[in-house]
Structures are given as structure tokens and as C-alpha cells.
Amino acid sequence: MEAEPSDVLLVARCAEGDEGALAELYDRFGRAAYALALRIVRDATQAEDVVQEAFLDLWRTAARFDPSLSRPASYLLTFVHRRAVDLIRREQARPQRGGDVEDIASRASTDDVPASLVASEQGETVRRALADLPPPQRQVLELAYFNGLSQSEIAEHLGEPLGTVKSRTHVALSRLRELLGEGFHA
């Protein structure tokens, strides 16, 4: 919670044209933004473009940024996610995407997760929470968020009714929120 006002303050400085504030925001969230983009698009150049667009979008719209609606971190990550998913939806043949589901949560139980950085402590919390979800719930979240599949594509991929996928996704996201706790945010 302590860092929160200063993230918002940095955005306010961006609105005044302070490039240093943008650089500081990049230092805080650039790594997470890049990791997310790369995870989704799986292409370093495209991932860099997505991250650059996200920070430039924040730079351009800083004056209109409303901290009561979103935090700078989640704004950036949401931007990166949407843009990255747009890219793979446009560029990849749809069936390919469903076929390669990497189980993020399984990494929580292995030792190869770098734990040296401040951000990865939060990452560990999220991975544990994901690992605590029943596997079918975890799966629909991963197919949607990391593989960019729509609800109907997930239903097709899993061979389950669309209604089941819809309600399972909602339960999964709500449960994840509970597991992370009210105070947790990106």
C-alpha cells in the first residue's frame, strides 16, 4: 500500500511532461509488463513493441488518468494483456493456441522460479494461489488469460458446454481473488 501514492504521483508527473517519471514507472513495472507480453505473444520483438505501446499510452493519457478507477500497475498490465491478446488473435491460427497450454501453476512447486526480486514475491503469492485452485478452474483462467482464448473457444477446446465454461471462469476468478486476499494487487 505504501508505494501506491507514489505510483499515482509518477503518473501525474508524466502528465506534466516529466520523462524521468516515466522512466521510474518503467523501472517498477517494465519487467512484469515485458514478461507478460512475452508469455502471450512468444516473440521478443512483438513483446517489446507491446510494452512500449503500453508505456506510451500511459504517457499520452496521463492527464486523464483516474486513480480511483485503476492503479497504474494494473492499467499497464491490462493494456499489455489486451494488446498482446489482440496480436495473437490476429496472427495465429486459432486451433494452435489451445493446443499449447503451459501450466503456470506447476512452476510454483519447482525450484526454477527466480525468487531474487521484489516482484517475484508477489509472483510467488499468485502462483501459490493458482496452485490452490481446483485444476479445472486454473485451466480456464490460463486458457483465457495467457492463451487468449475466448469463452466459446475454451468450451470447444475442452469439449464442455459454454455455460459450464462461463460459470467456471467466474467462480475461478472470484476464488482467486479470495485466495489472494483483499489487500493484494498487482
Binding site: 522512466a23 514478461a35 513483446a47 508505456f55 506510451l56 526454477d112 509472483g123 498487482a186
Partner: peptide, 27 residues
């Protein structure tokens, strides 16, 4: 907010060292 938290589950990847400078230059 919860969806954005999912982003943090991704294993760290180091962005290229010059990306920061490119973003600031573009800004």
C-alpha cells in the same frame, strides 16, 4: 485487478537493456 495479478504469475523475463531508453526517447 485480479486479472492483472495473474500477470505476476509469469516467470520473470529480462527485457532488453535498451527498451527503457527507447520508450523514454519516444515519449
Amino acid at each position: 485487478e485480479t486479472a492483472a495479478a495473474l500477470a505476476l504469475a509469469v516467470a520473470d523475463s529480462e527485457p532488453p537493456a535498451d527498451l527503457r531508453d527507447r520508450i523514454v526517447a519516444a515519449a
